[in-house]
């Protein structure tokens, strides 16, 4: 078990190295001049050159790449061109903001999806099942920015119940760290983006759970459970559901990659100050160090959640031995 985790961590480091390399190249292939954001047109030529040198932008690409990796290994993620601060510092709080939004919507989507999928399969052939499948397919294919806009229009503009963007009302100062994330003001801001993201994430676990649950109907252990005189609820949740959960977790781990893209969109639509929004902004500003670091963080989160999903899977399925 310990060996397994160590091996997975090594794999993660290799994965992160690849992500770092790809994002490094990707941003440099983008059209546009990064020095534009760095340099004020009013600067003299000498000042320009010193600045460019300080950021290492005068070096050829492969030297820049090697420098970047060397710095990374030493824990230096580079300085933001735009904020003129270390990129880690720029992203510091934003990681938490992203995590809160992402985890809360995932948990909601998976809880509702799994329970909903169970019910759909138990009601097979009924109108409820038909409606549920249609809704699941619809949610999965509805673009997030579209659902987001609809919700903003309805709840923020027409009804005026909830704020349309941001994370806190301007001028609001939290007294404690706890209040920062658990105040009514914060939760009101969280609600719309969370619902949007949950709706988007909901389709996949709902449909997969229904499918794998259907397959359990014919299993011998379900027949035995009936013969034992267990109640339908107990059979559905503790026997069929417990087994059907396994493929949902696998699929969920794979789905995390897709969730990443969704996260970027939802943060952008709702002006949520997280990593995803920062990626978009810094890409527009040609602020490579911030964009690259944000990417690395997101990739790290996804890999970590993948590992957690695998550990959870082996916990749920006694037949799986991690080696």
């Amino acid at each position: 078990m310990r060996k397994y985790i160590v091996r997975r961590l090594v794999q993660m480091i290799i994965g992160l190295f690849l992500v770092a390399s790809v994002t490094f190249l990707m941003f440099r292939l983008l059209p546009g001049d990064p020095t534009a954001s760095l340099l004020d047109p009013a600067f003299t030529v000498e000042i320009r050159e010193t600045i460019i040198e300080r950021f290492g932008l005068n070096e050829p690409l492969h030297i820049q790449y090697i420098n970047y990796l060397q710095n990374l290994v030493q824990g230096d993620f580079g300085r933001s061109f735009y904020y003129r601060r270390p990129s880690v510092e720029v992203l510091g709080d934003k990681i938490w903001n992203t995590l809160i939004l992402m985890l809360s919507s995932m948990i909601i989507a998976y809880s509702i999806g799994v329970i909903g999928g169970m019910i759909l399969s138990w009601k097979r052939g009924s109108k409820i099942e038909w409606g549920g499948i249609t809704l699941g397919l619809f949610l999965r294919s509805a673009p997030m920015f579209w659902t987001g806009m609809l919700l903003i229009m309805l709840f923020a503009f027409n009804l005026g119940w909830l704020p349309h963007s941001g994370m806190r009302t301007p001028g609001y100062e939290a007294a404690t760290t706890f209040a920062k994330f658990f105040s009514v003001d914060f939760l009101r801001h969280l609600l719309l983006p969370m619902i949007t993201a949950s709706l988007y994430f909901l389709g996949t676990p709902l449909l997969i759970m229904r499918n794998t649950m259907l397959e359990t109907h014919g299993e011998d252990y379900i027949e035995l459970s009936r013969a034992k005189g267990l109640s339908e609820w107990r059979i559905m949740i503790l026997h069929a559901g417990r087994n059907a959960l396994l493929p949902v977790i696998t699929a969920g781990a794979l789905f995390l990659g897709q969730a990443l893209g969704g996260q970027v969109v939802v943060e952008y639509v709702f002006g949520w100050p997280g990593l995803g929004r920062e990626i978009v902004l810094s890409a527009q500003r040609h602020d490579y160090p911030v964009a690259q670091t944000a990417f690395l963080f997101l990739a790290f989160m996804v890999m970590l959640m993948n590992l957690v999903a695998d550990l959870f899977y082996s916990y749920l399925d006694p037949r799986v031995k991690l080696k």
Binding site: E219, D220, Y221, E223, L224, S225, R226, A227, K228, G229, L230, S231, H239, R242, N243, L316, D317, P318, R319
Partner: peptide
């Protein structure tokens, strides 16, 4: 019927070997 099952009437099936829940 559920109350009678297993308490009064139990069943060992053809595929009993696969009837145990794996988890």
């Amino acid at each position: 019927m559920r109350k009678l099952r297993w308490k009064e009437l139990s069943l060992v099936t053809q595929s009993a070997m696969n009837s145990l829940n794996p988890v």
